[in-house]
Amino acid sequence: MERINKIKVKILPYIGIFCFLNLWEILPRLGVVDAQFLPPFSTVCLAIQTLWQDGILYTNTIISLWRVLIGLLLAIFIAVPLGFFLEVFSPEISKRLDGLFNLLSHVNPFSLAPLFILLFGIGEKEKLAIISLSAVWPILFHTITGIRSVNPILIKTGRSMNISTGVLIKDILFPGALPIIITGIRLGVQMSMFMLIAAEMMGAGAGLGWLVHNSAMVYQIPRLYAGGVFIILLGMSLNKIILWFQTYSWFWQERTGVAEQTHIKRRHKQVSSVAVFCFMFIFSGVLFFGGNEVHKINTQVRTLPMNHDMHQHSAGMEKGAETTEPQKAYVPNFKADEDKHK
């Protein structure tokens, strides 16, 4: 009986996904769901394989990944120092600004995006700007909250030893605020992924978002799903990596009172240097190769004439070089395309 239970426990988490995938395979084949709109899972897998072999999947994935990482790095390097600067050197001002920040956080990036695109185009720099700006808010908020959450007794202890502000930040505030800052970074990643896909759908020659949108436009549905699956995989991997980091930063929390994080396991030791090295290696790899691809794409597109297959006109890649015609094509207009496909 116990053995059965043990097996049950191990298998159960996978049953849901298993059933889901099976349904994905069976329902379209049976005709319950229109196979044109939802190709069976195996077809999608085949599409993934083809795309991978053609190298398209690799190129687009690494371009998207590159954009997210750069955007995220920018956001972190703006938001975290800003948060520390505000909270450490002028906590009263920081408190006053709470109301203003709350108001500004409700300004929808999508409402200003058209303006942004209108004036600056949607070249590489502009995409990165949109991605990083949308991630800045959660990271900034969480940095400030994190600093405020540091136990005041620790600060008092430090002060009693007459530490400099530098030591205060480095040895007390930063480690203390880190868990919450990482939560903010995780939210920032979510926002970045979000805006990345949106930005790529609006104006790019490459990237996973472009791949999905383009597939929809040329009505290559399996390709659409293939791209979609990869976007999900990308998002999930990033999330997992950051969660992994977070387990390390949480390890010192007391057992009680860490309510929402109970499902996050504790890592006792500090991060092993091997892990850090691997991570940095992969990280720089992405930055290098991704940057390479991005550069290729941007220079390539610039030289190509306006191509029906491209669907996103390249003119806007360069700052300010727009006419009214290409602008309409920037924002995917589903209505027009739908009529086309009917």
Binding site: M193, M201, G209, V212, A216, G228, I231
Partner: peptide, 8 residues
């Protein structure tokens, strides 16, 4: 990603 889902 909701945009992907939207297309679907």
């Amino acid at each position: 990603n909701p945009f992907i889902l939207f297309h679907i």
